[in-house]
Amino acid sequence: MTPVELSRTVLCAVRRAVDAGELSVVVPARAVVTLPGPGGSGDYATNIALQLARQAGRPPLRVAEILRPHISGAPGVADVAITGPGFLNIRLGGGASAALVEDVLRQGPTYGHSDVLAGQVVELRVPYDTRAEVVADTLVRIVATQGGRAEVRHAEPVNLRPVPAPEDPAPLGPDAARWALLHPAPHDRPRITADHLVQRESNPLFRVRYAHARTRALRRNAAALGYVGDPGDVRHEGELLGLLGAFAEYPHALRVAATQRTPDRLARHLVDTADAFLAHQHTVLPLGDEKPSAAHRARLALAEAAGTVLAGGLSLLGISAPDYL
Rank of each mutant, 00 (worst) to 15 (best):
T273S: 08
H70C: 10
A136R: 06
L285G: 01
L266N: 06
L241S: 13
L52C: 04
G307V: 05
L172A: 09
I82C: 06
V121L: 15
H154K: 15
A303Y: 02
A165Q: 13
R91V: 12
A96W: 09
A99W: 11
E167L: 15
L23C: 11
L243G: 03
R268I: 01
V140S: 12
R209C: 03
A222T: 00
V158W: 14
T262Y: 10
R91K: 15
V309N: 06
A246I: 09
P174N: 09
L92M: 14
L314H: 02
H183M: 13
L205T: 01
E290C: 01
A29F: 07
L278G: 00
R161L: 15
R131L: 14
N89C: 14
Q55C: 07
V309F: 05
R219W: 05
V134A: 10
G39D: 11
D323V: 07
L105Q: 12
L218E: 01
V10G: 01
P36I: 06
Y210G: 00
A20M: 07
G39Y: 14
P231G: 04
R214A: 00
Q55V: 06
G73P: 01
D168H: 10
P263S: 10
L310G: 03
P286V: 01
L243P: 02
V14E: 07
E201W: 06
G73T: 14
A267E: 04
G238R: 13
G57S: 01
Q199P: 00
A136F: 06
L11I: 13
F247R: 02
R268K: 14
Y210E: 02
H196K: 11
